[in-house]
Design a protein around this nucleic acid. Structure first.
Lengths: 226, 226
DNA sequence: GCTTACTGTGTATGGCATTCATAGTTTTAC
DNA sequence: GTAAAACTATGAATGCCATACACAGTAAGC
């Protein structure tokens, strides 16, 4: 239903209302608001003020949209180097974590999708080069990259699960009680000791990252003294 | 449609055709065969020779079934200790990997679900105690557990993605070519060096695990000489 | 001015989880 | 021994969903 001439603004040139950019932007917003489960092509189209089918002009499937949204938010990571290789990695991976916190749906997607969009490749390249600069190569280099990115993904995935449980508004207080009791029953004294400051995720993240980085450090070739 | 008396066997006591066990068993089989995307209550019921709604007598929702299936396969990990803490962990986490390889849908579920089923708790407890025996406690203990389990989850998730791409029968040869080319273009020489034996996942897994374990070792208190 | 391409959409198909009412069967209670 | 209650299983209906297809309005090219 085109608007009647009485309300239309013919002065500016008519541009296509939709575009891949607008779709991706809307998809990220919708995913942020509703999560992967609440994401649908219908809802996305509604948010963009378009018919559902119109999206398929710019994208072949829902999967495409998810792939694009994923690479889009990965682009939020600034691909900067810091001083040392270690600083570069800490900075880069901390930013990865922040992206995944801002967009809690990311881990669910990365668990089933190859990360081969342009932004993802650029970021992964940075990690490779940092470790190569540190002196790693061959299988150990691969293993180090794998250990680091796996750590970050895994950490934030479980962190997000935790937040999702905490964040939920009301009736889950009881549910949380029960889970904690459940855990206590099994993990007993160990759990209680460890649970000191259970929610200091920032500290935990850096602590674990240091652990992995220390492990990597043990594999560095002896520093050349030039 | 009950069988006519002419073919019925009235000798043994009539048991319920369905049960939570049968449902979970069927769910695991279905997930193995069709993956998370192909899993539906309808298909599960059909596989069990029952009406869809019958499942809801034993289970409240599809989510329940997935939770149960997940904990079920985690139960395949034998909770044994080996000699040293390190051996125990390598053994335990290697088995985790094998379970996730046998049931490639697991990472997709663990990415969005808390692992608080009975089997999961028992296995996680084993990891905690192994590290506590090694001498860790407090936040470092937590970080070590997080680093290890994150590493395993993350590693197998990307490994599974790789296998899924490779396994697909025919037309994906071209697709794979394109991905590799894409990667080469971005990662250039680094990628090529690292890609030596790219598919030796067993070795890669142990290499990365050693890396993390070495990092943990650096945090152990000095061994008491009693 | 005619044709061709582009952008956007409505409808239809087939699949999905889940609610509800209900039927057949077994167990229990008197 | 039978009437009532509980258990097991189900079909139909609701309201989601992704997407194939045919088609309309609009702009661009010649």
């Amino acid at each position: 239903m085109p608007e009647t001439i009485w309300f239309r603004d013919d002065s500016r040139p008519r541009k296509p209302r939709l575009s891949r950019e607008r779709i991706v932007e809307g998809a990220v917003a919708l995913l942020d608001a509703e999560g992967v489960a609440g994401f649908s092509m219908r809802a996305l189209a509604a948010r963009l003020g378009a018919g559902t089918m119109s999206l398929y002009e710019y994208v072949q499937s829902k999967e495409d949209v998810l792939d694009l949204a994923l690479d889009e938010v990965i682009g939020e990571i600034a691909p900067e180097r810091a001083g040392s290789w270690r600083e570069t990695l800490v900075r880069q991976l901390t930013q990865s974590r922040q992206v995944m916190r801002r967009h809690p749906w990311v881990p669910a997607l990365t668990a089933t999708r190859p990360l081969i969009g342009p932004n993802a490749l650029a970021r992964s390249r940075l990690v490779y080069t940092a470790l190569a600069d540190a002196g790693l190569s061959g299988p150990v280099l691969l293993a180090a990259v794998g250990a680091l990115s796996s750590y970050v993904n895994g950490f934030v995935a479980s962190e997000n699960i935790w937040w999702a449980k905490v964040r939920t508004p009301a009736a889950d207080a009881e549910m949380r009680e029960r889970v904690v009791a459940h855990l206590d029953q099994h993990v007993s004294d160990l759990g209680r000791i460890a649970q000191v400051d259970n929610a200091d995720f920032d500290g935990q993240f850096l602590l674990g990252l240091d652990l992995v980085l220390d492990g990597i450090t043990t594999r560095l070739p002896p520093a050349p003294r030039d």
